[in-house]
Computed example of a mutant assay.
Amino acid sequence: MKELSVWTRPRPQRREQPALSREQIVAAALELLDAEGIDALSMRKLGTRLKAGATSMYTHVASKEELLELVVDEVYGEVEPPVPGKDWRAAITRYARGVRAGLLRHPWIGSVLGEAGVAYLGPNVLRLSESTLAVFEAGGFSLEGADRALNTVMAYVIGRATSEAAWLTRLARSGQSEQEWAERLWPAAERAVGAYPRLAALYAAQRGQDQRESRDREFEEGLECVLDGLETRLR
């Protein structure tokens, strides 16, 4: 029977001098994904990159799906876990920023996060989840409330970050900067919203803004709204 996840399958026994390790495979896959995107990843291409045969590859990873589970957990391993303390909002804010930064460093990740099994049982994800639950509990949430708060924050962060990642990936393919894209698109956008006064007012106010700063500000303001809501429920 096929395993549900790479984390439910026993890890193969190490040989005395293995030709290739799981860690090497994951590192090479992450490098390939960052350089060329999700469509470029295949077991054959990865094997060529590592100068390894199929046998040594499949000893550690049974499929591309399993490989993605490992790589996604590796990305989460880059995030600093939050530390429980007096100010749960400050700790969660730092954590949310760290998750967003990690997802934007690896923009391909948004296309696989929704797949069943990906990363949910990975050691790095479990470590981060445990730490974040502890932060909420220290802030006064029940364990069940902490779980709901964690899910809410992560839904916001992943939703925002994956949308940003898709946008940045498209920009990279076009060869333009955010500012160049905005300046070219803005006249047409203003004409399109001309019959909608609220949208027209928003577009007029936003024209000429630094796009990177605007994205950062919108993320921070949205996160504050989420945390305000959680704090209201806590009270």
Rank of each mutant, 00 (worst) to 15 (best):
R207E: 14
T8V: 04
M43W: 07
L67I: 00
A146N: 13
K86N: 00
S214N: 12
V71R: 08
A138F: 05
Q176P: 06
E130F: 07
S63F: 05
R94E: 14
D228F: 08
S163N: 14
E220P: 10
R148S: 09
P82E: 01
L133K: 15
E224I: 04
F141Y: 14
L113R: 13
T132F: 01
S5V: 07
A29H: 15
T152M: 11
Y156N: 13
V226P: 05
E190L: 11
R100T: 00
W167V: 07
A134Y: 03
R105V: 10
W167Y: 12
R173Y: 01
L171A: 11
T169W: 04
T8L: 04
T48Y: 09
A54K: 13
T8W: 00
P123M: 04
D73T: 10
D87M: 15
G159S: 04
G102Y: 07
E74G: 13
T132D: 01
L143G: 01
V26R: 13
W181M: 08
F141Q: 10
Y203A: 12
E66C: 01
A166G: 13
G114E: 03
V135P: 15
G53D: 11
D228C: 02
G85Y: 05
A19Y: 11
A161S: 07
I92L: 15
R105C: 11
R207W: 09
M1C: 06
G122H: 07
A201I: 04
E178H: 13
D39T: 12
S5E: 05
F219V: 09
P82C: 01
W108T: 08
E3D: 03
R14V: 02
Y196F: 06
L4Q: 03
R127G: 08
G139V: 01
R11S: 15
S174F: 03
W186N: 15
G122N: 01
Q211A: 10
V26K: 14
M154R: 10
V99H: 04
W181I: 04
S63D: 13
L4P: 15
R94P: 06
L168P: 07
K86I: 06
Y95P: 14
R170C: 02
I92S: 03
A28T: 04
E69M: 06
A155P: 15
W186C: 11
P187F: 05
R15Y: 08
A35S: 00
L32I: 12
V157C: 06
E69Q: 07
I109L: 08
G47L: 05
R9A: 09
G47V: 13
G37W: 02
A166Q: 14
T162N: 12
V79Q: 05
A19T: 15
V61A: 15
V118S: 01
L30G: 07
S56I: 09
L46G: 05
E137V: 15
E183I: 08
D216H: 09
R235V: 02
A35N: 00
A40K: 13
L121C: 11
R212H: 14
A161Y: 03
W167A: 07
L104G: 10
Y196L: 14
V6M: 09
D228Y: 07
R105I: 11
R233T: 05
V135M: 12
G222W: 08
K86Q: 11
P10I: 02
L30H: 08
A90F: 12
V75E: 06
V71G: 05
L168H: 03
L20G: 09
V72D: 00
V6Y: 02
G175N: 10
D210L: 10
